[in-house]
Write a protein that binds this DNA or RNA. Sequence first.
DNA 1: CGGTATCCGAGATGATACTG
DNA 2: CAGTATCATCTCGGATACCG
Lengths: 118, 118
Amino acid sequence: MTKQIGKYQVIYSAKTRRGIQDFTEIINGKWKLPILITLFEKPYRFKELSRKLQISPRMLTRELQDLEMNKLISRTVCNTKPTTVEYAITKTGLTLKKILVEIGTWGIAYRKKMLAKE
Amino acid sequence: MTKQIGKYQVIYSAKTRRGIQDFTEIINGKWKLPILITLFEKPYRFKELSRKLQISPRMLTRELQDLEMNKLISRTVCNTKPTTVEYAITKTGLTLKKILVEIGTWGIAYRKKMLAKE
DNA sequence: CGGTATCCGAGATGATACTG
DNA sequence: CAGTATCATCTCGGATACCG
């Protein structure tokens, strides 16, 4: 819900502000978005993620736990030997995809513009 | 650029990843988004922002400098007595508006869904 | 008014070694 | 393999006082 006032557009809703706040809290931390983007591709195991993103196991564990707690990813223990665990994006997590792609597109355009200016 | 593989969609571009990374670095910090959202509304002076968002001058200065360095806001010193400084969103900053509104909408829907489950 | 300087504590992050 | 434990480091953010 916005209203044009010359160049400026008011974001009226306090709900929108809280929504943005929720978002930032959920994706906060250095690795949340990289993990999500990776899992958009396909499910991964712990070690695979660790290798692909160059994260220490300690941080990876914490970030995965946060994401799982917020229902954005799922954790599945496989009956293999030795044990493997698969992380996958959830239906809720998928709702973030569109926005993340847009953010990526914005970032590309932004970088291009900044480089052009210098 | 995406491709459907069952439930999963590949985000091919490494550029997209870097774009997302750029975005997170630019909006990183507790106050970047709240400041931007406030300036979408209209230009504000230093003290006004400090009061409205309840930020200490130290943090406000740092966050404003970051945003200005990244060309998302402008800083204008006014010829008044005592000196006042006006911060306003730039054309580049405005390009973030659409995404922030979408993020807010996502957050609202997300919260609603989570509350429904419990 | 619009900052800067200084200090402090809490939390984030990383490296490494270890466990089941 | 999938983590956990431990330690060290670094950054973030807040409080406060001060300056031009």
